[in-house]
Every structure is written in structure tokens, then in C-alpha cells.
Amino acid sequence: MTPALDPRDRGGPGQPLVSVRGLVKHFPIKKGLGRARAVVQAVDGIDFDILKGETLGVVGESGCGKSTTARLLMGLIPHDRGDLLFDGEAIGGRDLPLRDFRRQAQMVFQDSYSSLNPRMTIEASISFGPRVHGTPARRAIEEARALLARVGLEPARFAGRYPHELSGGQRQRVNIARALALNPRLVVLDEAVSALDKSVEAQVLNLLLDLKEEFGLTYLFISHDLNVVRFICDRVAVMYLGRVVEIGPAEAVLGAPAHPYTAALLASMPSLDPDRRTEEPPLAGDPPNPIDPPSGCRFHPRCAWGEPVCAKEDPALADIGPHHAVACLARQPGAAHSRAPLLEREAA
């Protein structure tokens, strides 16, 4: 997939559009009156790249840090540690001030209603961004109407309306149009289709695919729906309690998962075959609290392969195939896990 030639491109097609290295965000929370403070380890040292022109999916359950990652990347909340690079330049650094970065990266939120100003007409909401960047009002409105037409909403009927007069699917189309109004290179879709009905979701997913081709976009697609992620994403990162536990091509990660958590997520999807219903829940219990994550591998208390070594050693992401990396001791050659050496022999 070669992205269209973009005059703003700096590093060439080989350079990732986004590089995240060692990203950390801890939220302190007050506990009672004393000075005793707990820390929510929302994002705790993650690395990933988003290649130019691809769609990277991020999946995981609530509390895994996927939405926090999106907000950190967009600079909506400051990060504690780590590097965020956009086309080779540090976001918010001297070469790429936040304001310039935001012309190139936009976001669509999950709640289509909360993300539109209820007192502003649709066209005013869409044209707000370009006007901030100096586009004359008249032209900004014209462009907004053209964008509305592009996302499938007839401008004559919708441009002058208010958000409450639209359905959820229509509002989400407006949000997509608003994100595109600044002609970004990266669009972060934070559970952008999760709140929609299935038939509307399918329409919006098709729209996203069309727009990606037409505008040469790169997507960061955050979702909890593995079916949707598998359909729309080129690569997938699986997050668990603030860490990336597996990352790789969508077909590899979701077709032949290497991490036991990814496997459990896949097995948790309800079966659509009445003759082969799920008989045993793949995981017991709820996802643990990111305030006090388990030691070692964070998944070990729920893991079918959990061994004493997993509570001691914290596995790092290690390659197990082409572009496919996993953070699991059972998959690491030479690790003290009983399954690890076996896998090494198999591979040889």
C-alpha cells in the first residue's frame, strides 16, 4: 500500500508516520485525606509504530490504556515519559509545534453526541478548524458543505441543522467530516463506530475505507470489537493493563494469536453458530485494576499458562515472526517458562 505523494512527507515512505517509544502515563489519585497516593498506571511503557498509509488497530478491554494512548498521542493530556515522533520529528518539539502537528493529525471520538457542540450548526462545527487556521469564513463553509456531501450527508438538508436533529450514524459522519476538514494525514478513531448500530456501523466502516483511499490517510483504529478490527486493520496491537502484549499483522495476530491473552480475547467472542456455542469461558474474573497491577507479567493471575516465573519476570516484546512481536515468557526462547524451550525446538 503506497500512500499518495504528500508534499508534507519528510522521511519518505519507509519512515513510520508515528513512532511511540517508552510512553508512560500515570495518573495520581488521592486516597482519603492523608498524603497516601495511589497511581493509576494507565500507560506503562509502550512502543509501537504506525506506518504510512496503514491502519493500525489497538484492541483491549477497559482499563488497558488504549484511549489514554490516543489522547497522549494527540497531546490532549501530557505524557510523563517517552518519545512521540511524527514523521521523524518530536511532537510539540521545535521542528513540529503542537499547532502544526494538529493540522496533520485529527481524532474522531466514540460519543458522537458529546463531540459536537449542541449550539452550533453542523457546518459551523466542521468549518471551525479551518477558520481557526485562517481560511476565510465563506470558503470554509463551502468546503464544509463539500465534505458533508463526501461523507454522505446532503449539504442542503444537513448543513444548517443542529446535532440533536441527527441520528447517531449521521452525527458520526459529521465528526468524520470535521476531522477531515483540516486535511490531516493521520486520523485517530477512538471507538468511533462502537456506539453505532450494526447496520450503521457497516456503512461508516465502508465510508472510512473509501476516505482512506481517497485522501491517502493513515488510521489509528481503537476498538474492542475484534471482528471490526480484523476487517479494517492492517496491523493490530493488543493491550493489557497499560502494556502492549502482542503486535503484528492483523491476520497473524488474530488468525494465529501468540499471546494467551489474545487467544482468550478471540475465544471470548460469542459464537454465531447455534450448533457450536461456547462451553467454557476462556478467562475467569474481571480485568484487574490498573491501580495496582500484578507483578511480573501483568496477565499471569488470569493466564492458563501462568507459572511462578511469570510473577517474577516482566516479559518484553520479542519478535516471533515477520513483524510479529509478543510479550510472553512462554514464547521467549531461553526463558525459564516450561513452555519456552519447547517452542524453540519446534521452531528449529
Binding site: E61, H224, L226, A264, S268, P270, P281, D286
Partner: peptide
Amino acid sequence: LDATVQIQ
């Protein structure tokens, strides 16, 4: 609910 809890 989360996927792994939903199935339970």
C-alpha cells in the same frame, strides 16, 4: 461489559 466478562 468487556468481552472476556461478557462471555462469562
